[in-house]
Design a protein around this nucleic acid. Sequence first.
RNA 1: GUGAGUGUAGCUCAGUCGGAUAGAGCACUGGGUUGUGGCCCCAGUGGUCGAGGGUUCGAGUCCCUUCACUCACCCCA
Length: 419
Amino acid sequence: MAITAIRGFNDILPSEIGKWQFVEKMAREVFENFGFSEIRIPVLERTELFARGIGEATDIVEKEMYTFADKSGNSLTLRPEATASMARAYLEHQLYTFDPVAKLYFIGPMFRYERPQKGRYRQFYQIDAEVFGVGNPVVDAEVILMLIHFLRRVGLEKLELQLNSLGCRSCRPRYKEGLKADLDEKSFQLCEDCQRRLQSNPLRIFDCKVQTCQDAIADAPKVIDFICDECASHFDKVKEYLGIAGLDYHLTPRMVRGLDYYTRTAFEVVSYDLGSQNAVTGGGRYDNLFQEIGGLDVPGIGFAIGMERLISLLPKDREFIQYPHLFIASPGKETHREAYRLANQLHVEGIRAEFDYEGKSLKSQMRRADKLKARYVLILGEEELKKGRAVLRDMQDKSQQELPMPDIVETLKRKVFGH
RNA sequence: GUGAGUGUAGCUCAGUCGGAUAGAGCACUGGGUUGUGGCCCCAGUGGUCGAGGGUUCGAGUCCCUUCACUCACCCCA
């Protein structure tokens, strides 16, 4: 094999594509019912946008970005996520002059330079939805509701919605100090990584899988015990609105998020069928992002769904492939031309028809029709064709009928479209 | 970036203690039926044994190096 795709970049083959098309179609349908509009953003942005938006100290910016200089020396980066670009577009095109509230969604590939593993690839696809311009907790709930509705629509069950509040710029630093003070006393039982995290980002210790670290942090203070009155009230309202909608959630005080811009509401949907990378989707509120990249003070909230992870959870028994309605078998040179002509006519009529390209035997053509799972086969026999007739075979019940050629298109339409 | 595991036909795999021409099933092509699919039967195509080096009379098998893939860590969707 001469040339292969590069590490972490995958082909999505025809046998899989039906699932992708289905998921994208459902996302568009559901999100648009909730009043969201699609936006399309560039694959490349100035590196600065992500460095400032996502945060210089995050793993994404520090070590996971595809960054390079273009021919004029500008530092460009393949987008590692969509939110910063969408916020940039909102500001750049001043969408707030039409309506301060913008409800946007985006579907497309993201790029992060990480070692691939199950559910993680260097090019991976996200479905992203964001609401800009509303700080009211009712949209936090609405966005989560839409997300859960979408996941159910595509057939996912056994999901767990995890919910937390991360506080804001005024109360989170206070919490970090409190946490740090508590853990400083037990730092001897923290692993090497967590010793480092204690200084750089103590919240991350919650994610550590080392048992002694988990023991150390078990009775550590929680974010929600430290958040300010405004954040607490916001969080209460979110929970209240979710309750009104009858949505179950798990409070996960230990869930933290890796991007700097998150504030207040944070959520994840996890599935235990996914392996180590168990988050199907994650999101939250980010009331500081806009100021980081542009100066305007615009609140935002949204989520990103990992499409590969979502697709791996789709019900297995569902059929996503469209098989041909008809295979036209043409044993003999005379009939081959008629097969070609008829197939083209049927395509125009909306019937998926295949025919033999290589002058193979009838047996061989029948085998191919069977392999392609064609529902019907039209056999263009030399003798029948001379009389202006052909044989239509139903591959499921094996029944055959001989029809006059002029009736064939209408007969097929009736059988295929059922009227 | 770190760790572990795996590399033999398109796919899933077997290949004994280092021994002769590297096998099976599935898939593919053709035939058994001169014009009828699936099941069955027969035949055929298909291999740099991941790559390079070493040990040996002899390497798919042992050793070294390297590459790829997979899973996990870090972190995220």
